[in-house]
Computed example of a mutant assay.
Amino acid sequence: MPSDLAAFWQMAATDLPVIIVGGGRWGRTWASVVAAARGSGRGITIAARTDPDAVRAWAAERRELAGICIAATLGEAMESGARPVVAIVASRPRDHIRDVCEALQLGLDVLVEKPISVDAQGGQYLLEAAQETGRVLAIGTEFAYLPALHQLAGEIAKRRAGPLRLCLRWDDVAGEFRHGAVKARHAEVGLLSDLLPHAFSIFQAFAPRADWRIVDASEDRSRGRLEFADDAGGRYEFLCDVAARGRKRILKIERDAFNAMLDFGEAAPSIRIEGRRCAVDPQFAAMSSTLRLELGAFLAAVTHSIDTTFIISGMPVLLALQGQLERKIHA
């Protein structure tokens, strides 16, 4: 993927008409990301069922969104301007089945925010719906496009082979203000089910062809632990705390006597290999938005301009892991 990141960055500027379903924090974030990539809000429509007037007021205060349209329904959004080609579903997880299915039936390719659905069964239903309509269905896993992550994965791939041992620490502050609003978890989704797509997509960068399974899982209201294993003897631990004192994103990697660390909790990620700081490749300096890279990868899949098989092929694996997680949690 590293060689494609620059192409994804450029692809995000493509002015394909897009509908963003949901006018909450993530819908507004996506509108800002798409507009920043294109240079304006033209060709962007937000379908905000809950309070479209509030979304209009929010958009009117932002010059960078000039030209954006706000509609009350997906059907109304389809008639608001140039006919949309793609949809970004950023509504509540409990509404994803309704919103994704409606978008697919309208002939749109869909990028859906994680989790794809409140459970694996719902996710499988959406995957089958996309296959039946012949449309692209991708899930949002923005940190899978972090350039520093792929730089480090490339360095480790050069080393002598051996079982990987990874630990990802993921901490958030309760009530954190981010992307213009207070972060809030949705009651219909468990803690680990919500974060599983992030954890898996990050680990998968280091073992892209492995067969995966969940070995152990536990969670309470604010903390969780997931342990994965792969078919080559690799072990992957994910630890999260959403009521921590500070935000933290730290990935530690071991392979035999080799060790490395990636800290991406701040705006500028840092890499350490065997205790020594390693500079992030200068070619990645301008790629400051993982969401823009994710958008570009999705549009590349839609237009078939780049081989993006990985964007689609990972979905069945993720849904299988979600099913395993549900069984572990409810055992």
Rank of each mutant, 00 (worst) to 15 (best):
P269Q: 03
E188C: 04
A199I: 07
F298C: 07
Q322V: 04
V136P: 00
Q322I: 06
E219I: 04
R209P: 05
D194H: 11
L108S: 09
L166W: 01
R178V: 14
F228Q: 00
L106G: 11
A157L: 09
R169E: 07
G23R: 02
E64W: 03
S80V: 10
A331G: 13
A31G: 09
L251R: 01
L74F: 13
G275P: 02
V215F: 11
P269I: 04
V189C: 11
R292I: 04
A59H: 00
A148E: 04
R247N: 15
R235E: 12
S193P: 00
G81C: 07
A300I: 03
G323F: 02
A37C: 15
R209G: 14
V302H: 01
I68T: 09
G275N: 12
L319W: 01
L149I: 11
R135Y: 08
Q324R: 10
E254R: 09
L152G: 04
R247L: 15
A161F: 06
L16V: 06
R213K: 14
K248E: 04
V189Q: 05
L192M: 04
L226C: 04
L164D: 02
R159K: 13
C278N: 08
D211E: 15
A187M: 12
K328F: 06
H150F: 09
E132I: 15
G67R: 01
G162D: 06
A300E: 01
A144W: 05
D307S: 13
K114I: 06
A77K: 00
S270F: 05
A286L: 12
A144F: 05
A157N: 10
V317Q: 03
V85D: 01
V173I: 13
T14D: 11
F228I: 08
A82F: 10
A184M: 12
Q10N: 15
D211V: 15
G134T: 13
R94H: 11
I88S: 01
A257T: 10
E188T: 10
D194L: 11
A157C: 14
R62F: 07
S289Q: 13
E176M: 09
V110Y: 01
A31W: 00
E142G: 08
G296I: 07
A35D: 05
D241I: 05
E266Q: 10
E102K: 02
R98I: 09
Q204C: 11
A257G: 06
Q10V: 08
V189N: 09
I214Y: 00
A77L: 09
G190Q: 01
E227M: 14
E326N: 11
F264W: 12
I68E: 00
D256E: 15
V280C: 09
S193V: 02
A120M: 06
G180Q: 14
F284D: 05
R98K: 05
D230K: 10
V280K: 00
W30A: 02
A297S: 15
V118N: 02
L321D: 01
H198Q: 08
D281E: 13
L295A: 02
A129C: 14
A232F: 14
E294L: 10
K252V: 14
